[in-house]
């Protein structure tokens, strides 16, 4: 019994770390317009909308975070193998992984922007200087918390995987959670505030992203504020719940029966599917179906 209580404590701590990781991950990727907002940022100059938005397309978020977290975990593992204290090892590993992330971000922005020379999109060096560092800081938080969570899972809960492999698995999960949950807030709402709410993105509005702010010109740091308010916490809750339920079902139900965690996992998925369906139906009923506007107004 004591073991289960200890396990639930670790599970809660891992869930809390995962929540922080999810929030930082989504804010980081939105500042860099990574993931699905990227297509419109990339398209904007081709449609004549020159912008000052950071465009760091390293890969989709799941593979990119698979690398950052696996790299942080691998380096931390190597430092621990060199008899360095685990906390220090995880910090050093995450810092070096963030260095790699920062270099990838700068080369992605320079490459994408230089290849758009034909459309008159200049390279804004100040964007590179100010925004790369902000994404690196958020990425550090995301990587550090995820690697720390993996270390907890191994050392406290006795997971059999080595740290780098667990880092790869949870890194991909982190990227997927941020990409699926957080990006719609930024990609569909913040970028397209010039369109009517719920209008979607018609072909004629492709690339017409918001480029000017309340005062002056918008850059990706403004998108960072927005993401930190809505998309980030949503991603954090998503990833935190994933980690919590994943560990909780194993810790609590493994004692009863070896099939217990699997059955509970299926039940949890079914419950969430019902909740999601209810929210979707509720939202449709309250906000109405999308109808064609009666008169075209733009």
């Amino acid at each position: 019994m004591e073991e289960i209580v200890f396990g639930i404590g670790i599970t809660a701590l891992a869930g809390a770390l995962a929540t922080v990781a999810g929030a930082a991950e989504d804010t980081e990727s939105d500042i860099g317009s990574q993931g699905d907002p990227n297509s419109q940022v990339q398209l904007a100059p081709q449609m004549g909308y020159i912008h000052r938005i950071f465009n760091k397309a390293v890969a989709g978020e799941p593979p990119a975070y698979g690398l950052w977290v696996a790299l942080g975990a691998g380096l931390a593992w190597a430092f621990m193998a060199m008899q360095i204290n685990p906390i220090l090892a995880i910090v050093l590993g995450s810092a070096l992984a963030v260095f790699v992330q920062g270099v990838y971000a700068t080369t992605a922005y320079l490459g994408r922007t230089a290849s758009l020379a034909k459309f008159g999109q200049p390279v804004y060096i100040d964007i590179l200087k100010s925004m790369t560092t902000v994404t690196m800081a958020h990425a550090f938080v995301a990587i550090f918390t995820t690697v720390a969570m993996c270390h907890l899972i191994i050392s406290a809960l006795g997971h059999p995987f080595p740290l780098p492999l667990l880092g790869l698995v949870w890194g991909i999960a982190l990227g997927a959670a941020g990409s699926a949950t957080g990006n719609p807030f930024y990609g569909k709402e913040r970028q397209y505030q010039e369109q009517k709410f719920g209008a979607g993105v018609p072909i004629s509005a492709s690339g017409n992203i918001v480029r000017y702010a309340e005062a002056g010109q918008r850059n990706s740091l403004d998108n960072g504020f927005f993401s930190a308010k809505l998309g980030g916490p949503a991603s954090g809750i998503c990833f935190g719940l994933i980690v919590f339920f994943e560990l909780w079902r194993t810790v609590v139900f493994e004692e009863l029966n070896i099939w217990g965690p699997i059955v509970v996992g299926v039940v949890v998925i079914l419950i969430f599917a019902i909740i999601d369906r209810y929210i979707e139906v509720w939202a449709r009923k309250n906000f109405g179906p999308y109808t064609a506007p009666e008169e075209a107004s733009s």
């Binding site: 990119a64 691998g74 990838y104 320079l110 994408r112 740290l163 492999l165």
Partner: peptide, 23 residues
């Protein structure tokens, strides 16, 4: 120690990044 997993991801991102970034 699954360092091979780190190498896998390092290679996978490195091989696609250059063209993905410069297209």
């Amino acid at each position: 120690g699954s360092i091979i997993a780190v190498i896998f991801m390092l290679g996978a991102i490195a091989i696609q990044h250059s063209f993905n970034a410069c297209l």
